[in-house]
Computed example of a mutant assay.
Amino acid sequence: MITAIRAGVLVFAAAIVQVAVVSGIDVLGTTPDLLLVVVVAVAFHRGSLAGAIAGFGGGLIVDTATLGVLGVSSLLLTLAGFWAGRYGETTGRGRNAAPYLAVAVMTVLVAVGGAVVHFLLGDAVDLRAIGAGLVPAVLLNVALAVAFVPFTRWAVGEPRVERTQEVELVA
């Protein structure tokens, strides 16, 4: 219970800082995504369900604070949190570079997914701007992850490891 409250406070703070401070920072034509980094870190350490909940909550805060299309950030961050959590529960267990790889991959997927969602909503999408800003965005988010993944591990606890039972094959 305490871990869930800590994760919720961490995601809430990251969403507010993302909207109030980080969204005004422009580095190499892109903006770092602190909320995505925190959602992926929470998901990696606490699992897919916690990642999906953190992504939905953080995305909802960002959507309401920026008066954007309600649900776009929530959808993208929910999916990013879920898949980063699944990666942390399965393949990424016990690997030191896995959270940073998850941040890099989710940065690309959220950028592409956001372009697709906005295109489906009928908004104008500039694919050149997305493509040009993708590499700097990945580098910025991974640099943020270097600081925030250990902090998130400290705040919400070590990765949850579930024991798998042996499977017996019967003919």
Rank of each mutant, 00 (worst) to 15 (best):
H118I: 00
R93A: 15
L120E: 04
R95L: 15
G71R: 08
A111N: 11
G88H: 10
A102Y: 09
G55R: 03
S74K: 01
T3D: 13
G133V: 10
L120C: 09
R163D: 14
G47N: 06
V170P: 00
G114A: 12
V125R: 04
T91L: 15
A84K: 03
A104C: 07
I16Y: 11
F151S: 12
V40N: 02
V42W: 04
G59Y: 03
Y87I: 04
G85H: 06
Y87S: 01
D26P: 00
V103S: 03
V125F: 08
V108C: 08
G122I: 02
G131N: 04
F44E: 03
H45F: 14
G88V: 10
L49V: 15
V156T: 12
I130Y: 02
L101V: 15
N141G: 13
V42T: 06
D123L: 08
D33P: 05
P159N: 08
F82D: 00
G59S: 11
M1G: 14
T64F: 13
V39Q: 05
A50E: 15
I5C: 02
G29K: 07
V135G: 12
G71T: 11
P136M: 07
I130M: 02
V105P: 02
N141M: 12
A155P: 04
G85M: 05
L75I: 09
V9Y: 02
F148T: 07
V11F: 04
A80C: 05
T31I: 13
A97Q: 10
S23V: 01
T164E: 15
A54N: 03
L36R: 06
Y87H: 02
E89K: 02
V103M: 04
V62E: 13
R95C: 00
G157E: 12
A98E: 05
G68R: 09
G71K: 06
